[in-house]
Amino acid sequence: MIPYAWRRMLFWFLGVLVAVQSLIISVLVFISEWRKRRAPPPAFPHERRQIAEVDGNDVRIYTYGQDLYNAMLSAIDNARETIYLETFIWKGDPLGETFKERLARKAAEGVQVYVIFDKFANMVVAPSFKRFPATINVLEYSTLERPWYLFDPRRYARDHRKLLIVDHEVAFIGGFNIGKLYATEWRDTHLRLRGPASLDLAHAFIDFWNNNREHRPPMPPIGERPWSPCIR
């Protein structure tokens, strides 16, 4: 039998953990509502970067969200075989809905679509938005999937990656999440890679899926992993 003092300490720890998480959720909800009510600022100056060739890859830098989203949606629309999308925040606003609709359309056409997003980062997103058609493979990543994970510090990390890989040929990676806010009111940096480096990012996506898939079917291997010191 567990001593009373230990039980009391355990209950105290769990209570503090729940209280902290509840406070964080409340703050996130408040910030989200406050942002919706404030007037949008004017668009900040930005420029369209030229494409550079790096070790056999065409590389383009994006610093303006709307330009990036247009390129990402175009890549999704032109997908023939596979689409891998991974993001930290995916807002259930019109832009988020657009991404979801385009993915569903390609999945209905027979394209293999896999989606990963962080569960904690999207707690303020409506549950209805996070329901996808059965044709889309979805992993809502949670670090605390099992109660005993509370005692494993390695499980406290979030999935903060933002990736889009299409047909193992073109890939996007960087700091932009998915949401209307980031289209015109946010400064970040993203890359589009067209070439063999895209396959390396596809391997990274597959590794994450297979390591965290729980009950979901595994993703099949796609051959040897390329490596480029110029891209790394």
Rank of each mutant, 00 (worst) to 15 (best):
204 A>V: 12
181 L>V: 14
181 L>S: 10
12 W>D: 12
43 A>R: 11
21 Q>D: 15
202 A>Y: 06
174 G>L: 02
225 R>M: 09
120 F>A: 14
148 W>R: 10
129 F>A: 06
163 L>C: 04
232 R>Q: 08
5 A>P: 08
15 G>H: 03
151 F>H: 01
9 M>C: 11
185 E>W: 11
188 D>G: 13
2 I>G: 05
223 G>I: 03
203 H>Q: 00
89 I>M: 00
181 L>E: 03
203 H>L: 02
149 Y>P: 04
84 Y>F: 12
156 Y>Q: 02
13 F>I: 15
40 P>H: 04
183 A>S: 15
189 T>A: 08
35 R>V: 01
178 I>S: 03
62 Y>D: 01
75 A>Y: 07
46 H>R: 08
145 E>S: 10
102 R>M: 04
89 I>P: 00
10 L>C: 09
113 V>L: 04
8 R>Q: 11
135 T>H: 09
140 E>D: 01
198 S>V: 01
18 V>A: 11
120 F>I: 11
83 I>G: 00
226 P>G: 02
198 S>R: 01
213 R>C: 03
17 L>A: 13
152 D>V: 10
12 W>K: 15
69 Y>A: 06
48 R>M: 09
7 R>M: 12
143 T>M: 03
142 S>Y: 09
93 D>G: 03
135 T>E: 15
42 P>G: 02
110 G>T: 12
214 E>Q: 06
163 L>R: 14
154 R>W: 00
158 R>T: 12
42 P>W: 00
85 L>T: 00
226 P>D: 04
8 R>P: 04
66 Q>I: 12
88 F>H: 05
181 L>R: 10
87 T>G: 02
24 I>W: 00
197 A>T: 05
94 P>K: 00
82 T>E: 15
131 R>I: 15
221 P>S: 06
72 M>R: 02
83 I>P: 09
105 R>Y: 15
20 V>D: 07
21 Q>W: 14
181 L>C: 10
229 P>Y: 09
111 V>I: 05
108 A>C: 12
201 L>D: 03
114 Y>G: 10
104 A>R: 14
186 W>H: 14
205 F>A: 07
222 I>P: 14
174 G>F: 05
71 A>L: 05
53 E>Q: 09
